[in-house]
Amino acid sequence: MTKNEISEKGFEIVALAGDARSLYLKAIKLIKKREYEKAKMEISEANDILKEAHQCQMDLLTEEGKGKYSDLTLIMAHGQDHLMTAILLKELLEIVFLDLYQDLHSIQK
């Protein structure tokens, strides 16, 4: 795999992880409005996009594991950063925001 191909994968990861992150943030806003079903739809779409980003990462890891390349580009590192951020936001959203807000709102009723 060439440096250009690695960078292209990095750009793809940045774009996909960024899209997922935006949808997770939109879901948080919906949760704050108590629009849980809409939020769950946004989360589901974001999860699908995040899976694509993770697959790009796995493709690169597989290639590296086979010894097909060893160069890391700044763009690829940037993509990894975006992916990690989106994954963390997903985990916080599902664990903290969705569960906590639903529990709090059910107590208030």
Rank of each mutant, 00 (worst) to 15 (best):
A77V: 15
L98C: 09
D99V: 14
M76P: 03
E91P: 03
I95N: 11
L74I: 15
M76K: 12
L92M: 14
I75F: 00
E94I: 12
V96L: 14
K90G: 06
I87W: 09
K90R: 15
D99L: 12
A77M: 15
V96H: 09
H78P: 01
L83A: 07
L93S: 08
D99A: 13
D81G: 01
Q80E: 14
A77I: 15
D99T: 15
I95G: 05
L74K: 03
G79N: 05
V96Y: 10
D99I: 14
G79M: 05
L74H: 03
E94W: 04
V96M: 12
T73G: 03
A86V: 05
T73M: 02
Q80I: 10
H78R: 01
I95P: 00
I95R: 11
L98S: 07
H78A: 00
A77Y: 03
L100R: 09
T85N: 01
L100H: 07
E94H: 07
H78M: 01
Y101G: 04
F97G: 05
I75W: 01
L100G: 11
I87M: 15
H82T: 02
L98H: 06
V96K: 13
T85V: 02
D99N: 14
Y101Q: 10
Q80W: 08
L89T: 13
L98N: 07
L98F: 12
Q80Y: 09
L92K: 08
T85Q: 01
M84S: 13
L100M: 15
I75N: 00
M84A: 15
T85L: 00
L88R: 06
F97E: 12
L83S: 07
L72N: 06
M84Q: 11
Y101R: 09
E94P: 03
I87G: 06
L100I: 10
L83K: 07
M76R: 13
L74F: 15
L98M: 14
